[in-house]
Amino acid sequence: MKLKRLTRAAVLAAMALGIFIVELQLPNLTPIPGVKLGLANIVTVFSMFLLGPANTLAILLTRILLGSLFSGQVMALAYSLAGGLLCYLLMLLLRKLLTMKQIWVCGVLGAVAHNLGQMAVAVVVTGTPAILVYLPVLMVSGIAAGLFTGLCAQFAVGRLEHTSLFK
């Protein structure tokens, strides 16, 4: 069922991209770069547990590359890639540790890892370590936003894992 797998991954990538672009239209709540909901994380967590690591990596990279092109924020590509890949690596590990009832944890820690990766690149790119004062704020916002997206993924997985789509 190669076609089914491909279609599933493509639909999820399109969903992630749509969510990402819509979220960009929301105004920033804080003057701190990097504080955001990260709603596309729902798709990453969901696919990590229902589609597996290979599909998830493809979905994630598609969303990041096309997302930065579609939004015109090509400058932000380095931040997104660093955050996305660090988040992905941590999720690979968490996938082995978490039960299907603990998927939300993956959302929280994934968001924190994402913000850490972004911050690391921001320090290197700006050459100004002083912006590290925002790291704790990014950790708190990552935990809060990750809890939300993680729970969304948890509920979505709960509803869909026994349907014929994901057998």
Partner: peptide
């Protein structure tokens, strides 16, 4: 810059929180 985060940061007077414009690498 595309995100205008630095503009929305507003006035900086006596805060330890810097104004950051990531796209322009300005702090």
């Amino acid at each position: 810059c595309p995100d205008q985060v630095c503009v929305h940061a507003g006035w900086l007077a006596d805060s330890a929180a810097p104004i950051v414009c990531l796209p322009h690498r300005l702090v």
